[in-house]
Design a protein around this nucleic acid. Structure first.
Lengths: 215, 215
DNA sequence: CTCGCAATGTTAGCGTCTCTAACATATGTT
DNA sequence: AACATATGTTAGAGACGCTAACATTGCGAG
């Protein structure tokens, strides 16, 4: 039953002597531990199935402990999603490596990474975009999202041989974003059952990229 | 404070003598009343802010009453979303009226209606598509959604001069759906602040329809 | 008509959840 | 060493989901 308990603490990055930690009053880095617990639970049970109490049990602390680090449940989620958005952006930047500048393949790669993130970290993705907006409207999240969109805009501009972000570039970028965004939702909801592996997905993304980039 | 109370009952479709209803033990049509209360509250406070207790207060019954009509909270939401999906489909069918068969304008009209619904009934929309999927996986909802997609496929086929739903038609339909789906989310999240009125939206939808329909 | 049953309400209460208050313990600065 | 602050704990208030037990109503069969 409690085989999973305290796991969050145990496999923390800076694993000091586990025995030493055992009889500690203080957790070490409870904030990080709770964020990690939150992430796991949201992925496992979904955004609405998540409870602060569960996170406390997983982190091995009392249910009042989180409130020394976060204002409320919502702030815990914001902190967790924040980290996810950074991963999201880093993944997208990494996906561009080795693909020649100005190639539409870069757009495809970005879209592919976007969808992959939405599918693997669907809890984070849905928290950010799936309708908890009313409560999850932290300006830092807004900012992080716009930063990611900036990457797309830059690539679109390059493909269109523009030196700056014109209205046309912005329009095309937004259309591309709409597409991969919707695709992410629909794929996770299994609306396209017959969608095979990555090959078919990439073909789809490539097709879209070309349709959106041409005149 | 209770100016809104019992509103749900008061303005019901079949408004009998209000005075007569007042001293009634039975509600009349509590099931319908609760669905309507649920719809209002979800639109007002968002899917996660909704509580059965609130719905009871709005409908003017005790907090145990709903469980004579619905298995649990989730079934209340399913029933409410179900009605929304029917409205959604009817709206889309109505949007086609007067537009010549085989015209891409029909695709645009469908997309426009899709987005309009997502924006006006965003609570319903997000419940259906925004990540409550794990709990909201009623097969009837699945079916309703596929019915709506069928409308799109039929129109795409007509525009492509196909007599049946080929793989190509299905692919284009899915891409179109992805687009308007993602657009709906992003527009509500105000990701496109500069998006003006309907005119600009329609222009965007028209552009997309043409890009997706051509070879 | 009325008797009885099924349908549909109500009240009371359990367990859980979020969050706060009051108190306890650790940490680190002087 | 002593104190201030940070970070934990326990206890509990108030809301919610849901169930059990009981009350009222509507309706069909005798």
């Amino acid at each position: 039953m409690n085989s999973e308990q305290k796991i969050v603490e145990a496999d923390g990055a800076e694993a000091e002597s586990a025995a030493l930690k055992k009889s500690r009053y203080h957790h070490g880095d409870l904030r990080a531990g709770l964020i990690e617990a939150t992430r796991r639970l949201v992925e496992e049970k979904g955004p609405d199935g998540f409870s602060v109490s569960d996170a406390c049990r997983l982190a091995g602390v009392s249910t009042a402990a989180p409130y020394k680090h976060f204002k409320d449940k919502n702030e815990m989620l914001v902190a967790m999603v924040m980290e996810g958005m950074i991963r999201h952006r880093d993944n997208m930047l990494a996906a561009l490596e080795g693909i020649p500048e100005g190639s539409p393949d870069r757009i495809t790669a970005l879209g592919h990474e976007y969808v992959k993130f939405a599918l693997t970290e669907h809890g984070v993705f849905r928290l950010k975009f799936g309708g908890f907006t009313d409560r999850l409207d932290d300006p830092r999240l807004q900012e992080a999202g716009e930063g990611t969109f900036g990457i797309v805009l830059r690539e679109v501009a390059a493909c269109r041989n523009e030196t700056e972000i014109t209205d046309d570039v912005r329009r095309r970028g937004f259309l591309l974003w709409s597409f991969v965004h919707g695709l992410s939702f629909l794929l996770y909801d299994k609306k396209l059952k017959e969608m095979g592996g990555d090959t078919q997905l990439v073909a789809m993304l490539t097709d879209i990229a070309h349709r959106m980039l041409r005149d």
